[in-house]
Amino acid sequence: MQSKATAAPRPPSALPKVQLQNYVVYIFFAVVLLFFSVTIGDKGFLSVMNLFNIARTTAMITVIAVAMTFVISAGELDLSVGSTAALAALTCGLVMQAGFGWPVAVLAALVAGLAVGCLNGFFVTLIGIPSFLVTLGMMQFIRGLDMRVTYTNPVSISNQSFNSLFGSGNLFGVPSLLIWSLVIAVLGHVVLKYTGFGREILATGGNRMAAEYSGVKTRRVKFAAFLLSGAAAALAGMLYSGMMQTARFNFGEGAELMAIAAVILGGTSLFGGRGTILGTFAGSLLIGTINNGLIIMGLDVSEQMMVSGGIIILAVAFGKKPTA
């Protein structure tokens, strides 16, 4: 065999620098962390309180982004997660207000999220409408529904078990929000990387027809991704409401875009087929850390938005593969 081995021409892009680009999110994260430590380390940025704070404020984005990694890796997109989070929060709040216990409320919220995921999955996989359009419409529809159910009035949640479990509480001094996001990230990582379902997600997004011809039921796989996304959005909605001890129609506004940014920052391909949950987790923390640091630096909201938007573009630009 070896006598025939030839020096295959390699395109220059196959050289080692690709390696570094896979880690761009971690490098950016380290740089940002270092930058803030030096500049505002003495203003409390490095305090445990503040670090927990970062984890707390990014938990919802993380939870949504983990499921979004599955959706994007399967070659689809879900824009409806933000409004779904609010829908789940309101469902949860209203069920508890009606006198049911928190487990029933949590179940109802999950059912609401799964129902939205089911609708998305139906329109995308069975009717064949591009997910961008389906979930764009769904985002609008569900947000309208959120506003309609309570006529935009907030629903306060007085159940302290719920609040402490889903948002305001601590376990051994660690905020429950941080625990939730860690659990979901680890779960997502294991499922995407080590299970047959994870492989099927990546194959479906990488080349749907080739996956089909290899025996993968790609519709079922995509449908499952939307269900996951709906359920994760519901959990995120409960985390919002647990943290705020209330449910509002405007929870999760813009969360879908933040989550997508976190996923793409983490190195997942926007076109499907390649995705990592670790990257997503780092991407989400990166966004949270930037926002947090900028606040401590004293930038106002308008400036924060400009800076964090710029950093997102930069990070994605650095992570771009040179191949066409």
Binding site: G206, M209, Y213
Partner: peptide, 8 residues
């Protein structure tokens, strides 16, 4: 098109 996931 049908045989391989080229990026895998």
């Amino acid at each position: 098109k049908f045989g391989l996931v080229l990026d895998h």
